[in-house]
């Protein structure tokens, strides 16, 4: 049980470093190097030319939510409130009701996600026992010009399709 001890060299103790000006000028030379390179040729900047160039979205990327449905189009969600319970931002509000199609006892009558409060942590997806909520819509920019439209209802969540195939999604480790 011998711990490996690694002694790190302590910087900043030599005279040249203590005078400070030398190091400042070194640092300024470094930053000026960047400035000069970019000034002469700005094609190598580390920037993405958003919105013209959109980022590539991987399968595991957590985007806007959606609710999945059974093959016959009925909602998979059984209104168990696990997502709402786990949501650290308290952005999900569900209202449960009797379900009459024999798939389960309960179904959501209302399922609202307030995207302005959502922190896109993905806990709801983790918590869901039925894979009913996913964040695989691949919608990168959620924008609008009024607050109300950021509250997604059951309909909105159901009609958004997933951006990836089922195999890809499963492979994504979700």
């Amino acid at each position: 049980m011998s711990a490996e001890v690694k002694t790190l060299k302590r910087e900043g103790s030599t005279l040249a470093e203590k005078i400070y000006f030398v190091e400042i000028f070194k640092g300024m030379a470094t930053t000026f190097g960047h400035f000069w390179r970019n000034l002469l040729d700005n094609s190598n900047l580390y920037v993405r030319h958003y919105p013209e160039v959109e980022p590539e979205i991987p399968v595991r990327w957590r985007g806007r939510h959606r609710l999945t449905s059974h093959d016959d189009g009925t909602v998979k969600c059984v209104a168990c409130f696990m997502c709402q319970t786990n949501c650290p931002a308290e952005c999900i509000s569900i209202e449960a009701g009797e379900r009459l199609d024999d798939k389960a006892e309960k179904m959501p009558v209302k399922f609202n996600i307030d995207l302005l409060e959502c922190i896109y942590c993905g806990y709801c997806v983790e918590a869901c026992p039925l894979d009913a909520i996913r964040m695989d819509t691949g919608i990168y920019s959620v924008t609008d010009n009024n607050r109300e439209s950021f509250v997604l209802g059951l309909e909105d969540l159901l009609k958004t399709p997933g951006a990836f195939s089922e195999e890809e999604y499963k492979k994504g480790g979700a």
């Binding site: 930053t31 960047h34 400035f35 700005n42 900047l45 580390y46």
Partner: peptide, 10 residues
């Protein structure tokens, strides 16, 4: 703009 270039952005 200078800050941008110093930090490799636009």
């Amino acid at each position: 703009r200078g800050a941008g270039f110093f930090q490799d952005r636009a």
